[in-house]
Nucleic acid binder design. Structure first.
Length: 656
DNA sequence: CAGGTCTCAA
């Protein structure tokens, strides 16, 4: 009993001591007991010490050693042991081959696993359901779903049938490829075979839906699962749902699910708490997060590094850097070595606030403590230097990263490129792009967006002519084709940036072409997209077109932001169609936008400049009727206009 | 052999 417990608790020295005592007392240690000890030590280098002690080794002894070697990633040793060991008379078992196949799959060498599968057959052994599942899982992990399906359907040739684990593995495989419909087909096959989906099946499907952004579909799935009576072990699927809700900003629904779990007697564990605390922190609800944190601690659930990371993130996002730092310092003084991620969060907090000195100071602490920085650490420093307009220093960090034995990542390069993009330095962006290619770092859609942004900002108006515009339009189309051929799907921001670029070079028809491409790829144009287009129509004087564009968008029930309206209103004030300005301003109010004094003063300013007396008066009165008092700026504008001076005095608005 | 939480770029 002592031996069993001490080995299970990985108390290495104690186990060996007990074994020695037992031998001293001439007590017989059964092979079964030895095997049990061996099993618990198979992932440590003490494995051989136990192994040597065992007199009557059996099949389990050998397969445990093989499994141990595989788990220690000593696959060659495992194979060697299988071939040359003294157990020739017993012969290797399928279990040992399973361990080896699993080991190779985990390293991504599926072909090696396959050849061992063949070896099993050649040895006259029968591959078990485990053997098949291991290989099917390996194939799925490298994306060979077709081969995985084939192997699953061939299982009956070896006298075995797929079990629910097989189906779960296949469903996960489809999910990894983003082929959620394939996952559903697997489930249908599973049902046809008379097997029921279990909690893991549901969790895999739920994960897939959440990752595709189908949060509502996920909620339906979760409800369905809970209605089938899986309550007792539903904490993990609920956590997946919580994570999905938090990541899409639906924190209120996350909280209500969280409370529902508690009400149903499903006590949230550390992970569930951490997910919700992180979600709250990310969305700036730090007080609520702290409240849950205290509740968690009251339940004797000890926070881990992730929980602390969430709190640090929350403090940094609120700009409470002093508080974040003192929390970090208190974690440091607790004595345990902190995860670099925790330092990264605070370093990034400093960088985001433009406090590069503090970021560097904390970086120094990391180095002096002997903790290895990660690429993210350096990327935040790059951001910090860029934010403080020191691109030269930021660029030097690329070499510093290499000095620390790390490689700059796509984020390192993209951050730098963005800094260059903001000042229109396309030459330096091209340089970095070449450097990335040389280093073999593939770009992402963010990188591409930054490159387009650089082109946009670097545009010089004096070069403007029709031929060049067409060339730029072609360049944008080519850029999009490049992305698609590289398997990098452009997102909303990529399209918005391209549209902005085309607007900047006054190729509005081209910009609208990209709006259509965007829609055809099932990407919803955002209000930012429409803002760019409406603003450009106004800037280039196509105000009627802007009117009809807004009108058509309203017809389609597209939600527009306040900016779209105020832009067009201002344009109408300038170009002298105050009636339209009035009409649109009413729409602004009716649609419930928060209309501020700045919006009134923008309109009144422009109307006064054009001597549109009655309209100025109208907006002034409208403002008063909405309970907004004029400020000094508005009064000055009104007074400066001769026609309005006496009217303004009448309202008693002359300042002292 | 199958399921959940962290930091960095537009």
């Amino acid at each position: 009993m002592l031996l069993f417990l001490s080995s299970r608790l990985r108390m290495v020295d104690d186990s060996l001591y007990i074994l020695k005592k037992m031998k001293d007392q001439n007590l017989n240690v059964s092979t079964q007991s030895y095997n049990s000890v061996l099993y618990h030590f198979r992932e440590t280098d003490k494995m051989w010490d136990v192994y040597k002690e065992i007199k009557d080794k059996n099949e389990h002894t050998y397969s445990t050693v093989v499994d141990g070697l595989c788990r220690q990633q000593k696959l060659e040793d495992a194979v060697l042991f299988l071939r040359t060991s003294e157990w020739k008379d017993i012969g290797p078992s399928v279990v040992s081959f399973n361990s080896i196949m699993s080991g190779y799959c985990k390293l991504g060498f599926v072909d090696m696993a396959k050849s061992f599968f063949c070896t099993v057959l050649k040895c006259g052994l029968v591959p078990s359901v485990y053997s098949h599942n291991i290989l099917i899982n390996g194939l799925c992990l490298v994306g060979s779903i077709a081969e995985a399906l084939e192997l699953a359907s061939d299982m009956n040739k070896h006298g075995v049938e797929p079990d629910s684990v097989t189906y779960n593995i296949l469903a996960k495989g489809f999910h990894l490829l983003g082929m959620i419909s394939g996952a559903w087909e697997v489930i249908r096959d599973m049902l046809d075979k008379g097997l029921s989906p279990d909690v893991i099946t549901y969790t895999i499907l739920l994960c897939g839906q959440c990752q595709l952004g189908n949060i509502d579909m996920g909620l339906v799935l979760l409800k369905d699962m809970l209605s089938r009576g899986f309550e007792l072990n539903s904490i993990i699927p609920c956590s997946v749902m919580l994570s999905g809700l938090c990541k899409t900003g639906r924190i209120d629904e996350a909280l209500s699910l969280f409370n529902q779990m508690k009400a149903d007697g499903l006590s949230p564990d550390l992970v569930a708490y951490s997910i919700v605390i992180h979600g709250l922190c990310k969305l700036g609800k730090f007080d609520m997060a702290l409240w849950l944190y205290d509740e968690m601690c009251d339940k004797r659930i000890l926070p881990n590094s992730r929980t602390h990371g969430a709190l640090l993130l929350g403090l940094c996002q609120k700009g409470m850097l002093l508080e974040a730092r003192s929390l970090l310092d208190s974690l440091i003084s607790s004595g345990e070595t902190l995860d670099i991620v925790l330092y990264n969060i605070v370093i990034d907090g400093y960088a985001k606030s433009g406090c590069i000195e503090e970021a560097l100071e904390l970086f120094k602490v990391v180095i002096e403590t002997g903790i290895t920085p990660s690429v993210a650490t350096f990327n935040s420093l790059i951001y910090g230097y860029c934010k403080t307009q020191n691109i030269a220093e930021a660029r030097k960090i690329l070499d510093v990263i290499k000095l620390y034995g790390l490689a700059p990542s796509v984020v390192s390069y993209t951050t730098l490129m963005d800094a260059y993009a903001n000042c229109g330095n396309t030459k330096s962006i091209d340089e970095l792009r070449r450097e990335m290619k040389a280093e073999g770092i593939p770009p992402t859609n963010v990188t591409y967006s930054v490159i387009f942004k650089g082109l946009c900002r670097g545009w010089k108006h004096e070069n403007c002519n029709h031929v060049l515009r067409e060339r730029i339009f072609e360049k944008c189309k080519q850029g999009l084709r490049d992305m698609e051929s590289e398997g990098i799907p452009p997102d909303q921001i990529t399209y918005n940036t391209i549209i902005q670029y085309l607007c900047r070079v006054k190729h509005l028809s081209g910009a609208f072409v990209f709006l259509e491409i965007m829609k055809s790829r099932n990407l919803d144009a955002s209000s930012a997209t429409y803002n760019i287009l409406i603003d450009s129509l106004c800037v280039y004087g196509y105000i009627r077109k802007a009117d009809s564009f807004i009108y058509s968008l309203q017809e389609q029930n597209v939600s527009l932001s306040k900016f779209a309206y105020t832009t067009l209103i201002k344009a109408h004030c300038v170009k002298g169609d105050p009636e339209m300005a009035v009409k649109l301003f009413h729409q602004l109010l009716h649609r419930g936008f928060n209309v501020s004094i700045r919006d009134y003063s923008a309109v009144i300013n422009r109307l006064c400049r054009r001597h549109l007396v009655n309209e100025s008066k109208f907006f002034f009165c409208l403002m008063l009727s909405q309970g907004i008092s004029p400020d000094l700026d508005i009064c000055e504008v009104m007074i400066k206009s001769d026609e309005l001076l006496s009217w303004t005095i009448k309202w008693g608005l002359l300042p002292d």
